[in-house]
Design a protein around this nucleic acid. Structure first.
Lengths: 183, 183
DNA sequence: ACCTGAACACCGTTCAAGT
DNA sequence: ACCTGAACACCGTTCAAGT
């Protein structure tokens, strides 16, 4: 990759990060290109779809969420790690608009699983907290990680506001976690 | 209201119904105006927002869903009516794209409760099936109708496809209903 | 009053021209 | 190779002009 191409790539990701968090995930791509000091067609060359740009911007955050799962599993009893991961994941996603759009593409929407990288990482993390508590019998065994993620994501994705929506989302999450417990 | 205004109103709703079900809820408003044989500005005069047009088109369907609740309550034991209504409501919404968008505006998204008519009718229906089963102790008492609707809608709204998505939505709905049961 | 269609500002995408 | 900016087709919205 040529030096200027590499530089433009980085500039675009940086500009996109700023713009997405300021204006939301539907921000104008022309705006992003302009604030990166780059022609708009260059943006399309590097990121043919909006989703690929979102992934480049939020890749690190997804990795953080996955790392958090490993950390919690290592430091807490299984059921506490399970509950805590779901809560932190949900809260984290809710506070980052672009992240929400990325997960919507991966789990919520049109063709789930299209964004395979994101899909796979999140599924791995979810399994690492879920399988444990199913082993101990604390969580019902007829649920799989994909269903659990879709459920939590459904709640998160449909809560827009930081204020009332966020609190309401937490209440719904509690409800779902309770429903997942074995009886 | 003048005769031609009334006629245009009806034509717009009819054209919108056809176009929404063919192209989805994001169909071009210009297309709808054109296929109604009406100037595009006339559409805006009658329906200042897309949401108001959606409501005009799907008002009858919302009423059907509410009526279904009353019918089930009258003919089935409480818990069966409760479960059946949630299933039928979900299935009904999934099969109508425009209806999904309308409920997204009312419950899912930006400012829930903005569309007050739809919000109120659905809430009334939900309460009519919910309060009964909470009375009998079959469903946990720490849930309200709004939370229940948001939960079911969250699942429905994030399942796009009629195929795999629909089946997956059903599995998630079963999970949620199970979680709502008192223990 | 109500309607009309053109005009406007905006978007994502593509493409010929540059280096 | 890679970038550029103009051109294109499209959208929602508005507005002066008609009846």
């Amino acid at each position: 990759m040529r030096a200027d191409a590499r530089r433009n790539h980085e500039r675009l990701v940086a500009a996109a990060r700023t713009t997405f968090s300021a204006q939301g995930a539907n921000a104008s791509l022309d705006d992003i290109a302009r604030s990166a000091g780059v022609g708009n067609a260059t943006l399309y060359r590097h990121f043919p779809t909006r989703e690929l740009l979102l992934e480049a911007v939020y890749r690190g955050q997804i990795e953080d969420i996955a790392a958090k799962a490993a950390e919690l599993v290592a430091s807490l009893p299984p059921m506490e790690a399970f509950v805590e991961w779901l809560r932190e994941m949900a809260a984290h996603i809710i506070t980052h608009r672009g992240l929400k759009a990325l997960l919507a593409a991966a789990f919520g929407g049109e063709r789930p699983g299209l964004n395979s990288w994101c899909h796979e990482v999140m599924l791995g993390a979810a399994n690492s907290v879920l399988l444990q508590v199913q082993e101990t019998g604390e969580v019902r065994s007829d649920v799989n990680a994909y269903q659990m993620l879709r459920l939590v994501n459904a709640i998160v994705l449909t809560s827009e506001q930081a204020g009332a929506g966020g609190e309401e989302a937490d209440a719904l999450l509690t409800l779902v976690i309770d429903g997942l417990r074995a009886r």
